[in-house]
Design a protein around this nucleic acid. Structure first.
Lengths: 193, 193
DNA sequence: GTCTATAGGCCGATAGAC
DNA sequence: GTCTATCGGCCTATAGAC
């Protein structure tokens, strides 16, 4: 079974990484154990030795992906600079836009949403992201302005929806456009104001 | 084969409607011909008599869903009221939030994105929505303000991303929160300003 | 138009040898 | 740990009777 201390080229490690990639690209419903095995270079028996099944493997993969996203968001939002600068840095961060969000993508999967354990990491990481953004917004000026929680929700939603627009178009442009539009609307948060 | 003039309880009609529902809930990859047949109360032979296969049926279903969404958006955005009022009406329109957007949802399906014909209606309807919103934004005050195209992209993205947050949480609340947050940021568009 | 039969292949998993 | 064999069932059709 998987252990945090194991090396990085163990079979179970490759299985988890392959699952993460396939989950990102095809979702849970669209990812088969056979496809995971092929991508990981592991056999059937090998996969079922390390994991109880597709769901178990996906659970491990989803949890890791959520952790990584959480850490990445924290690094930007708890970094240096004014509130506006950190939000800007978050929004302009380099992204694999056309691949979409590896976490947000899972919300469109009915089997993930129907399974509390699979859904939990998705919900948690998006909730934490909103909370972090709300905290940053609260730091800014405009104490009588828009509700920080709602502003934060709009920021996360713009990013998640930006992926949808980009994938629909086959181009990252609408994502960048949405982000620039939001930043313009957030101008009142700028230190100069 | 399907004809626009046919009655509403024909078998092919039921097949299209069943496909629309399943596409909405489970996506293209997650929807099987057998499931469609069951939902439509039609047999195997019947389905393949009316449609060339799963892809053909999905194409018909997706096109219709896109048309409906286009018409609904047009009705609100080309209605009465100030620019802000129409954007507000669009954002506050009643939605089946937890089901997500039947069009946007398809962008997460790799088989849809990889197939130009299946993707086209998705791209077109979202592009038209952005263009319509940009036109409304342009009507508003603030001629020197944010770029209307970018503002429109942010609006569409907020809605699409709102669905993601709602589904992650299992509650429509984050969708409403994001929409209220965006409306607060759009306050400069209000006639009173 | 609709039905049943058939097809080759994958689905997700289990069993047991090595 | 990994392999092969096997399972019942679904996947996406195609064929041909009725």
């Amino acid at each position: 079974m998987y252990s945090a201390a194991m090396g990085t080229n163990e079979t179970s490690e490759r299985l988890v990484e392959a699952t993460r990639e396939l989950l990102w690209e095809r979702g849970y419903t669209g990812t088969s154990p056979k496809a995971v095995q092929r991508a990981a270079g592991a056999g059937q028996g090998s996969m079922y030795h390390h994991f109880a099944g597709k769901r178990d493997l996906a659970l491990t993969a989803i949890r890791r992906t959520a952790e990584e996203m959480d850490a990445a968001a924290g690094a930007v939002l708890e970094g240096e600079g004014s509130a506006y600068a950190r939000i800007e840095a978050y929004l302009l961060r380099e992204r694999d836009v056309l691949r979409g969000c590896p976490v947000g993508r899972l919300t469109m999967d009915p089997e993930v949403i129907a399974d509390p354990e699979l859904r939990a990491p998705v919900e948690e990481v998006l909730d934490r992201l909103r909370a972090r953004l709300a905290a940053v917004v609260r730091e800014g000026p405009e104490s009588g302005g828009p509700d920080p929680e709602e502003t934060a929700a709009a920021i996360v939603a713009t990013v998640q929806g930006g992926y949808v627009l980009a994938r629909a178009t086959g181009s990252p442009a609408p994502f960048d456009s949405a982000v620039r539009g939001l930043l313009a609307l957030l101008a009142p948060l700028k230190p100069s104001h």
